[in-house]
Design a protein around this nucleic acid. Structure first.
Length: 269
DNA sequence: GTGTCATGCGTAT
DNA sequence: TACGCCTGACACG
């Protein structure tokens, strides 16, 4: 279930478990057979993430680029002996002395050159999970140039990297912004608020492996991880249900082929 | 079993 | 704006 937090979390967990290991790599599905043969028997040196992209660094200066798309999944097994048979769709599998990793359904799983990686990184905007100096200014500048709806711009990976359909709806709610408002009409303090929300909430998501935007205190819980399915989000997929803050019915519409939800009272136009 | 839907994105029209 | 692509979970009959 991949927004940026999923990718950064996968990178962290894979790094911790597998970095430094020599791995046996194959492609049960067959669609990454050549790549797997190239990697097989090499040491995995590192794993890093940017936005929704993940990079495996292999011995011999080989980089594998992975993008999960909508369906991609990483599965890590701590005991390779007990790992199940890979499904027919397992694109890449690796096995080492500290476990196994299966990848299925990715949009991209490919060995890329340094030039290709550079080109890719050029297209990726500020990542709330890998903040660099000047990021907020870049985000402000991008938004100020766009007349398209704020919620649509927040999905543009060149503007902010890692936000997906769940977070964008939730950030607009928490910032009190109608998702249909033209991006350039959103005032600067609100843009800053959205940026700060993305940093703090995606960090929570990265840590617990789940998107939680509801303030635990608002529902009598101690921490985000304690919130149950169905009470973790304010607006996403809650059309017709009542707003957790004001009880107005949640609205929804489609923007550029993606559905978005909002509270007409808490997010006035 | 079949149909539908999904936290994404590139390309064609 | 629409479509194709990637896979799996779930609702329905």
């Amino acid at each position: 279930m991949p927004e940026g937090h999923t990718i950064h979390r996968a990178a962290r967990l894979q790094r911790r478990r597998f970095a430094g290991e020599v791995l046996e790599v194959d492609s049960p599905q067959g669609r990454f057979s050549d790549g797997a043969a190239e990697l097989n028997g090499r040491r995995l040196e590192g794993v890093d993430a940017l936005g929704k992209h993940l990079f495996h660094r292999w011995e011999g200066d080989l980089t594998v680029h992975i993008h999960l798309g909508l369906f991609g999944k990483f599965k890590v097994f701590t005991d390779a002996e007990k790992a199940p048979e890979p499904s027919d769709g397992t694109r890449m599998r690796w096995v080492g002395s500290s476990g196994a990793m299966y990848l299925s359904g990715p949009t991209a799983c490919e060995i890329i050159s340094a030039e290709q990686e550079e080109e890719l990184r050029q297209r990726i905007g500020p990542d709330p999970l890998a903040v660099r100096k000047g990021d907020l200014e870049r985000v402000k500048a991008s938004l100020a140039r766009r007349s398209t709806p704020i919620a649509q711009v927040l999905l543009d990976q060149a503007v902010v990297a890692g936000i997906g359909n769940v977070y964008r709806a939730e950030f607009c709610f928490l910032a009190g912004v109608d998702p249909r408002m033209p991006a350039r009409e959103v005032d600067e303090p609100t843009v800053e608020h959205i940026w700060n929300l993305s940093i703090s909430l995606m960090k929570v998501g990265e840590r617990i492996g789940r998107i939680v935007t509801v303030d635990p205190a608002e529902v009598g819980a101690k921490k985000p991880g304690d919130l149950r399915r169905g009470s973790r989000l304010y607006v996403y997929k809650r059309a017709g249900q009542s707003c957790r803050r004001c009880t107005a019915p949640i609205m929804s519409t489609e923007l550029a082929n993606r559905r978005v939800w909002w509270c007409p009272t808490c997010q006035p136009s």
